[in-house]
Simulated scan of single mutants.
Amino acid sequence: MTIVDKNYGWKSAPQDPEVVYIAIPVLEPYRDYIEKALVSVVRSHGLKPVVVENVSMYDLKGRIVITDFPVIGRSDWMLSKERYVSGILYYSYAGDAKSAVETIENGLVFSEGEISNSANKLCQTSKERLLSMRIVNQSCAVAYWWNMKAKVGMLSGGDPYKLIANEIASQLDQFLRSA
């Protein structure tokens, strides 16, 4: 627990740390799978998941989770199917949606050589904003994947979308454990 000294102008965020606002601007069918997996992880931590379209409206009101997977693809063969994604998972304990949305909209670079820099830029921008606002908890985490693939045999009955969603959710689970 952080002790906030009002005499120095420092304040706490978010307003309600028990609520996690989740934005998933990802194409179908990925969206449904990712949403289900993230909501399940949030609930497993005793928190309230709220899936939203416009996460900017919830800036500093609750924890924030944003996924951005601008690169998706598929390959189907006679005996197997493969799906792949490239993108990020952003988590802010303080609920800094504004910095993340602005950084994403201003053009993160999603390429093999630049995705790491894009992920770092998200947290750096958030920390700078929260520091300028004198917000004590500046916890931010970003996971990123370049060409994460899930391949299943046609006869196995496996689902590559579910495998990808579970990997993304496992990263959120780690972020929530460390917050």
Rank of each mutant, 00 (worst) to 15 (best):
I164M: 00
A150G: 09
G113M: 09
S126K: 04
Q138E: 14
G158V: 09
I164S: 00
K149W: 05
S116M: 10
A150V: 05
V109E: 15
E114Y: 13
M133G: 04
A150Q: 04
I104W: 04
E102C: 02
F110M: 15
M133Q: 15
W145D: 12
Q138P: 03
W145T: 07
Y144V: 03
G113D: 11
L130M: 14
Q138H: 04
N106K: 15
K151I: 08
Y161M: 03
E112N: 13
K127D: 11
G113K: 14
Q124F: 04
Q124G: 10
K162E: 14
N166I: 01
V109G: 07
S132M: 06
I104Y: 08
V142G: 05
L122R: 03
C123S: 03
N106F: 10
V109F: 06
W145F: 15
A143Y: 11
F110Q: 12
M148G: 02
R129Q: 06
G113A: 15
N166S: 09
L131G: 14
A119M: 03
I135F: 01
Y161K: 01
Y161F: 13
S111N: 13
M133F: 14
K162P: 01
V142E: 06
V136T: 11
S118R: 01
N117D: 08
R134Y: 11
S111W: 05
S111G: 14
M148N: 05
I164T: 00
C123Y: 01
Q138M: 10
N117K: 13
C123W: 01
S156M: 04
E112L: 05
C140R: 00
W145P: 05
E102H: 12
M154C: 04
S111T: 15
Y161T: 01
V142I: 12
L163A: 02
P160Y: 11
N106S: 13
L131M: 12
E112V: 10
S139P: 02
A165K: 00
A165M: 00
N147V: 03
E114L: 11
A119R: 00
Y161E: 00
N120I: 02
N137R: 10
V109R: 14
